[in-house]
């Protein structure tokens, strides 16, 4: 326990880095996945291409992606941007299908009514389809959040500090305590991300709470 108490500020700083490296890609990934998911719905020919294509991205080993990133985007090897971009790719991989399915779950009658009322395509997407897809997208986002919190720790191997650094540190010194602290912090962080997404979803979907109240 003494190690933990002595290193509390350092651990907190690592948690901060971890939140940044796992959280920012979540937002960026969502921003990219929405138009891609919409395209997949809108143009049927693109659907299998986009879904399979982005799905494949998830199968690239994270360590390889972290190492190869500088070659693709011209950054330095230790630049945390490499990790952010790589994690964004994983998020997109998980979310494109979710967004497409969420948009696909909007009832036909609702879409028709929107068109008949005189919504343009863009307005319909933002005012009708996306709000109604929020519950489905949010479910996908929760999976992506937990996955990000876990995967990002691998970046410790290439020297980008976050909670994963506690694993490499403990492993090098054959010392259990930092590893244990790292695992517990990761689990708690994933839980916090999950709860934050649930809370945010509830906030923007008041209509869901009344579902079966009638």
């Amino acid at each position: 326990m003494s190690w933990s108490i002595d290193h509390l500020p350092a651990v907190l700083s690592l948690i901060g880095r971890h939140v940044y490296l796992a959280g920012l890609p979540l937002l960026l990934g969502l921003l990219i996945a929405v138009p891609l998911g919409w395209l997949a719905r809108r143009y049927r020919v693109l659907y299998p291409l986009l879904i399979a294509g982005t799905g494949l991205l998830y199968t690239i080993p994270s360590l390889a992606l972290f190492i190869l990133m500088p070659i693709f985007i011209g950054t330095r090897i230790l630049d945390p941007v490499n990790v952010v971009v790589a994690m964004t790719i994983y998020t997109v991989a998980l979310l494109v299908r979710t967004v497409a399915d969420g948009l696909g779950a909007v009832p036909d009658s609702v879409n028709q009514a929107a068109t008949a009322m005189g919504f343009g395509r863009v307005r319909r997407l933002f005012m009708v389809e996306l709000p109604l897809a929020v519950p489905v997208i949010s479910a996908g986002l929760r999976v992506a959040a937990v996955s990000n919190v876990s995967i990002v720790s691998v970046a410790a191997i290439i020297g980008v500090p976050q909670l994963g650094s506690l694993f490499t540190d403990g492993f090098r010194r054959n010392f259990m305590e930092p590893i244990l602290v790292g695992v517990i912090a990761c689990v708690l962080l994933a839980l916090v991300f999950d709860l934050a997404i649930i809370a945010g979803t509830r906030l923007i979907t008041p209509w869901q709470r009344t579902r079966r109240a009638a």
């Binding site: 009658s109 609702v110 028709q112 929107a114 008949a116 009322m117 005189g118 979907t205």
Partner: peptide, 17 residues
């Protein structure tokens, strides 16, 4: 054109949100 024409469909097609 559509904004100038009222439209009612089966199942109402109300916006649930």
């Amino acid at each position: 054109l559509r904004r100038g024409i009222g439209y009612v469909i089966q199942q109402a097609g109300l916006f649930p949100h």
